[in-house]
Design a protein around this nucleic acid. Structure first.
Length: 421
DNA sequence: TCTGGGGTCCTAGGACCC
DNA sequence: TCTGGGGTCCTAGGACCC
């Protein structure tokens, strides 16, 4: 038996938590560069502001209705997420942190002492008491059904924020009400193709033959069908699997037309990605650099390109990747375009010291001093960010993203603690 | 004028092998 | 004239998630 615990309007709730004056005010949180709406308080949802809309399309509504907007404050959200997750870890024996605002709990053994619904209500109470965040709880025999139970708990207030779908009849009743696109794993494209086959509701998908779905779609969709029928195919995964790739990319605050600025940006992304790589305690062999103009522009000539290179030896040394990235950029750069976004990707990971040399390679020697230099950089930068950086990252970073509506890092920076007067 | 970032998994098809 | 069958591995692209 699984429970899915999902925080309500997570980013917006985090912002409201430290601004009691905004308790009843509509609040939205924006993506990087203050580009799109990525979270909405319940008041903002009521105003009809859609998830993911570009800000410029709803600017009038935001203004007229007195909506308060915030830039994304990841330091705050990550810290609040950790508090919620550690509270959950005290309430259930096994927890899978699925995303920044949701977690699956294994409920095996829970119903010996109290009913599953009572347990769900208790989770809500305790998480709210410890963190101030409201959550909803969906309970079911499979993860996919638990997701739908959670959706129901969020949608219908009279559920009290907890829905237990143990009983098959309740499952079918709910599935009949939900369009197939609400099912976890069924996105826009699949919804269309399923509808062409006459499958419109979640119940119709559950009642389709798994073999038939397998033939028309894939094993993934087949698994979804089985999960909807109550056959658990997706297990709880407590340990975060090691990463297979690391991406660092950003849209620019302003378009880039100058090569040196692009070099700065790519250098910045390379050093971010390498820092993450060292945190994962991995070495990477494969580097990709990409850049593109805006796909939304009618006036800008379109250009999008990427190039990759494999190192002779896996590494986590920023300097090695910087040198290669500059070579790749040299090959990719074309004068005259208005670049909107660029990024780098690291892949093909190895544990440090483990790799397969080719026949004619001289065995690599990673000098101890190289390793220490990177460690020193990371240590210094973790205490005071941006203490040490590479000159190629630039000093002004005029291209960097816009975050004009950023709230303070209330919980992670001594200088920015909230003050009670 | 202005449209996010970071991931995973699966499949199809080509190259190559015996 | 007639040209097999069964694999593996890799990559690109498509789909999904939050």
């Amino acid at each position: 038996m699984f429970a899915l615990v999902d925080c309500n309007n997570f980013y917006a709730s985090c912002e409201k938590l430290f601004r009691p004056d905004l308790a009843d005010t509509p609040v939205v949180v924006l993506s990087n560069n203050d580009g799109c709406v990525v979270a909405r308080s319940k008041e903002a949802k009521k105003l009809g502001i859609k998830m993911g809309v570009p800000v410029f399309q709803v600017r009038d509504v935001l203004h007229k209705q007195g909506v308060v907007a915030f830039s994304s404050n990841y330091a705050l959200y990550a810290d609040m997420s950790q508090r919620v997750m550690s509270t959950l870890e005290n309430l259930a024996p096994r927890v899978e942190v699925y995303s920044i605002d949701e977690a699956f709990l294994d409920l095996t053994g829970i119903n010996y002492s109290l009913s599953l619904t009572e347990f769900g209500l208790q989770v809500r109470r305790i998480v709210h008491k410890h963190t101030g965040i409201n959550v909803c709880v969906g309970i079911a025999p499979t993860k996919t059904l638990a997701k739908l139970a959670n959706h129901a708990a969020k949608t219908w207030h009279k559920t009290g924020g907890v829905v237990d779908l143990t009983c098959t009849e309740r499952q079918r009743k709910l599935l009949a009400l939900l369009p197939v696109g609400e099912v976890w794993g069924i996105g826009g494209k699949l919804t269309k193709r399923l509808q062409q086959l006459g499958i419109d509701t979640a119940l119709q998908l559950a009642d389709a033959e798994p073999e038939f779905i397998r033939q028309h779609f894939s094993v993934v969709v087949e698994r979804t069908v089985r999960e909807l029928r109550g056959e658990s195919c997706l297990a709880l995964e407590q340990l975060a699997p090691t990463k297979k790739q690391i991406i660092s990319s950003r849209a620019f605050g302003d378009r880039i037309t100058d090569k040196q600025q692009m070099q700065e940006a790519i250098s910045e992304y390379v050093s971010r990605a390498c820092k993450k790589l060292r945190q994962e305690q991995q070495h990477a062999q494969y580097l990709t650099v990409f850049l593109r103009t805006s796909p939304f522009s009618d006036t800008d000539a379109p250009y999008s390109a990427s190039k990759s290179i494999a190192l002779d030896t896996p590494s986590s040394d920023t300097r090695v990747f910087l040198a290669k990235a500059m070579q790749l950029l040299e090959a990719l750069w074309v004068n005259g375009y208005r670049y909107a976004k660029a990024g780098v990707m690291l892949a093909d990971f190895y544990d440090p010291g483990v790799y397969q040399p080719s026949l004619f390679d001289t065995p690599p020697v990673q000098k101890d001093t190289d390793k220490k230099l990177m460690q020193l950089m990371d240590t210094l930068n973790s205490k005071h960010s941006k203490t040490l950086w590479f000159a190629s990252q630039g000093t002004k970073q005029e291209w960097s993203m816009k975050r004009e509506l950023l709230s303070p890092a209330y919980t992670t920076d001594w200088q920015q603690l909230p003050v009670v007067k």
